[in-house]
Design a protein around this nucleic acid. Structure first.
Lengths: 166, 166
DNA sequence: CGCTTCCTTCAGAAACTTGTGAAGTTAAGG
DNA sequence: CCTTAACTTCACAAGTTTCTGAAGGAAGCG
């Protein structure tokens, strides 16, 4: 029995197929390639954690690439980093329920759109046709902001019923 | 009185400042630069329509660039194209209320994610930890699908109260 | 306290994107 | 039916992005 790489006993081909396929979807939705692949690999791991070395090996990329991808993902709160006690190894973890909450936390993006639209309404004039169009768009985004919060609360209830506290 | 370019009487600097600023936000959210600029220009126009030539002139880009950007935007249902009767000119229009509905029609994106996740659950096994994590994520997206539909219905009601039938 | 392992940073090569000019296509109008 | 205006397509040049190898830095372990 050798030192198994945690994810032993699974068909590496099937895993890789999923990883690349899901990553491709994320890329199409606007995510950079390497963060997408790293994230998909974590999502597909049984433990939900992988070390830098494991990621580099299974994705066939340099430690530098892993480092950059992980920095991005943790800024987006899609993964967290933890140091294994008594080791130089770092583990990266996807919290199954937290990652998609991060997805809906595009709030910062919405806020910036809103602020740009507010400036537009002001500088073009609230009474002009263009100003009114922007004001309506702005109102929509403000509406969405609130709805998302409520939606996530409903989801948390439903999730607990169906999946338990995770 | 010359042939005014429809958008006369506005401070072109203020308009341009908004256009570039809003476009920059769209770019940061993942949209390509030129579609973002074209779209912002339409949003900032009083009539909500501009011709290819007007777009090229105000954004200082070639007809080719306008053509490409508009193709993308109409694929995304963010603008519609209409031919001026008895003219070779094409007009591009942003329907103020339809464009952000298109935004929420990222449904196609969600559906592809769901399908990739379903494959993941199947190929890794619904009983494995990774499979369960994917199943939960999948359930979340399915939940979101439904919520978005309901949310847009609530918005339409509220919109009519506040802005009329547009 | 120095060795070693692992991660990070950085400069640069390679690959991909983006926008242009030029040629091509479509359709109005004589 | 020919001319001409307007949009589109295409090949390529310029500009970005992305990943790598190499050098640098932090932290366990003897």
């Amino acid at each position: 029995m050798t030192t198994e790489p945690a994810e032993a006993g699974r068909d590496p081909e099937a895993v890789s197929k999923f990883v690349e396929g899901f990553a491709a979807q994320l890329v199409e939705a606007g995510m950079q390639r390497m963060p997408a692949r790293v994230f998909a690999a974590l999502l597909a791991s049984d433990s939900g954690t992988l070390t830098s070395a494991e990621l580099g090996e299974s994705l066939r990329v340099s430690p530098a690439a892993v480092s950059g991808a992980v920095r991005y993902l943790s800024q987006q709160h899609m993964v967290s980093r933890e140091r294994e006690p008594g080791s130089r190894r770092e583990r990266y973890r996807v919290h199954s329920n937290q990652w998609y909450e991060a997805l809906t936390n595009r709030e910062a993006v919405l806020k910036r759109w809103e602020s740009a639209l507010r400036e537009g309404v002001d500088s073009l004039g609230a009474g002009t046709p263009a100003g009114r169009r922007m004001a309506e768009t702005l109102a929509f985004f403000e509406f969405v902001d609130g709805e998302i919060v409520a939606m996530m609360e409903r989801w948390r209830v439903q999730r607990e019923e169906r999946f338990g506290r995770g």
